[in-house]
């Protein structure tokens, strides 16, 4: 069982959360010319890192907020959690 520290609600079990994928992916700016390659990278291409991975989770059975979680994809250890709009240093 993973335990995720929701920045809004505190420590909760993974059963309350749903996964939302790689949080480092950024949608291209729409007010400029976007190449096919940029769309491709945004929609499909992923690094899928082994080790520290910043990802989105939604506290779907709790506050329903989207949050960011820094987790190790090899050990499943969770290091830090952030609010969705928080900048990650």
């Amino acid at each position: 069982m993973l335990y995720i520290n929701c920045p809004h609600c505190g420590m909760r079990s993974q059963n309350e959360f749903s996964y939302g994928g790689d949080a480092s992916v950024k949608r291209p700016e729409l007010n400029k010319e976007v190449s096919d390659q940029e769309w491709d990278d945004f929609v499909y291409n992923r690094k899928s890192l082994r080790g520290k991975h910043l990802e989105l989770w939604q506290h779907i059975s709790g506050c329903r907020q989207w949050i960011k979680v820094e987790r190790d994809t090899a050990t499943h250890e969770i290091f830090r959690t952030f609010k969705a709009d928080e900048e990650v240093a």
């Binding site: 069982m1 993973l2 079990s13 993974q14 059963n15 749903s18 996964y19 994928g21 790689d22 899928s48 890192l49 082994r50 991975h53 990802e55 987790r71 994809t73 090899a74 050990t75 499943h76």
Partner: peptide, 13 residues
Amino acid sequence: DGYNSYAQRGNLP
């Protein structure tokens, strides 16, 4: 299991 992983071992939920 539903999240990126290289662990080759799973979780009970």
